[in-house]
Amino acid sequence: MKLDELTKGLFKYNPIFYLLLGLCPLLAVSTRVDNALGMSLAVLFVLVGSNVIISLLRQWIPPEVRIPCFIVVIASFVTIVDLFMYGYAPDLHERLGIYVPLIVVNCIILGRAEAFASKKSVSHSLLDGIGMGIGFMLGIVAIASVREVLSTGAMTIFGYTVIPGLTQTPAMVMLLPPGAFFTIAIIMALINYTTIRRARRR
């Protein structure tokens, strides 16, 4: 069933909470929902692009040098995203900083290339890339919304106020590095809690 390849990345094998991949950009740019959306669109593009190209080339890449080949393909897509963002969204490019070129060492992308795209057909790899990319987006936006609301008391996405100011004294610590670790710890504990409860009911 082809649709499975798309939906498995969303919840069942979510790259962040289940596979624990791509932690660095996840924690570093999840200070605001804007940044998180920009980052995850970039990751989605690189993931889909590299999955398709690697799947197309899978018969010609010799297994001994596959990792360098994958890295070159991924790095080319990252360079495209980097230049595109620099040209069309310079503000976002400035805020994401070195985390844009660092997509190249994001383990989600190399992981999917190695575990999936180098073995499966193009259409399956395309769906897998889209699913995993959206799964990453769900995770990072979830963390970013918690952090943005708690650290500023409000939420603005690309200039639109989604949640107005709730408090005059927001928790600044959520904006700082410790807040990122706290947020992901609590979300993972909640996931564990529901899994344990569901297992107990059966």
């Binding site: 624990l20 700082l176 590095p177 410790p178 807040g179 990122a180 670790f181 706290f182 992901i184 710890a185 609590i186 993972m188 504990a189 909640l190 564990n192 809690y193 344990i196």
Partner: peptide, 16 residues
């Protein structure tokens, strides 16, 4: 619910 990774993340938060 906090066993293994979640408690490791909490410790990392306190270290940070």
């Amino acid at each position: 619910s906090f066993e293994n990774l979640p408690i490791a993340f909490i410790s990392a938060a306190l270290l940070a």
